[in-house]
Nucleic acid binder design. Structure first.
Lengths: 190, 190
DNA sequence: GGCGGATAGTTAGCCGCCTAACGATAAAAG
DNA sequence: CTTTTATCGTTAGGCGGCTAACTATCCGCC
């Protein structure tokens, strides 16, 4: 997981102090923001350390899950392949990155890569039996780790949490381009 | 920002459905978890896209901030250098990574790197005037972006948010080793 | 003073992410 | 039918993260 701004979270009082020097700094916003970055980081680590034991990175896991989900979605026991572009779309990385991930997964015998039957520009990526078995081995503990991390939260807290997180996601989805923000179009929008 | 499990967040009903097949899957925990991962990702993107305009990566920004914070902390106008190990500790990456980051920052004229006066094993990394000016130029918009993302949340929501995030962080900090979790020591602890 | 263990920063190699560019292919336009 | 535009997966190169190993240095102990 890449670097966060700084490892130790500043106390609110420090942010308040800093806001005197930087008028653009909203102390409570910064506090939430930094806690969010940090928590996301930690959440990632909790599951990633388990995946690593299976020689699976989060990136590879995403590809495997997308393929596996596609089998389930198809409601069929037979594999339903995806193209690299579809994998890229579902996993949120570029097609170029998918090439590398599929390279290593193919080498490990977890996926197949064959020319697409309908379009010669495309490849067809499918989950092997070994890939499916690897996933089946990983998923129980994967889900347990998620549950473990969230255990201190009771159901109502979880609902609140999701609601707040969704507000952030909605806001982020409305992200105008950076240049617009800097030129003050944002204040006109607000 | 690296890959999340899958780009599109599953609806709660899907998680409920999946929990029938996977007894280890706690639907509400998974929902919060995935929302958290995703929100952390988006928060990262909001500030990172701005930094990129200044040719600064999040990693570099962290180093600069640590150096700048050290100046401030020292309450002195003169620069107060840090060692690579101190930078690594404050920014949460390895010393090896710091070497690379400092390499590029030094090339850009934003930091100085000199032998340490007291210990010949160490280097001394300091912020240049140019580095400080670059930071001063970046920080207003950086803080504005944080504030922008959190704007939909009112003060009480922010306090709740920080409380919930802190619970997660506390839990993550109590993370026993992975092997212990898998062997069931966790259930004995709970 | 000498030895052993610890620490520091760097290097090499790997991985995963990106962008830009490319050749091959498909689709659209005229 | 031909030309132009769009799409695909891959490649090359860069960056930032990691681990392991290395040489140089420091420190504690005998």
């Amino acid at each position: 997981m890449p670097l966060l701004m700084l490892k130790d979270l500043p106390r609110y009082e420090c942010l308040l102090e800093a806001s005197r020097e930087f008028p653009d700094l909203d102390p409570s916003a910064a506090e939430v923001f930094l806690h969010l970055l940090r928590s996301g980081d930690e959440a990632f680590r909790v599951v990633e350390s388990h995946l690593a034991q299976h020689d699976i990175s989060q990136g590879r896991f995403g590809v495997l899950m997308a393929l596996w989900g596609n089998c389930q979605r198809a409601g069929s026991a037979t594999e339903k392949p995806l193209t690299p572009a579809e994998l890229a779309e579902r996993t949120g990385v570029t097609r170029a990155t998918i090439t590398g991930l599929v390279d290593t997964l193919e080498t490990a015998g977890l996926v197949t890569r064959t020319p697409h039957p309908d379009d010669r520009r495309m490849m067809s990526i499918g989950l092997t039996k070994r890939g499916a078995k690897t996933l089946a081995r990983i998923m129980p503990e994967h889900f347990r780790r998620m549950a473990w991390l969230m255990e201190p939260l009771r159901e109502p807290e979880r609902k609140t949490f999701v609601r707040l997180l969704t507000k952030v996601l909605t806001r982020a989805a409305g992200d105008p381009s950076a240049s617009k923000r800097e030129t003050g179009v944002l204040s006109a929008r607000s």
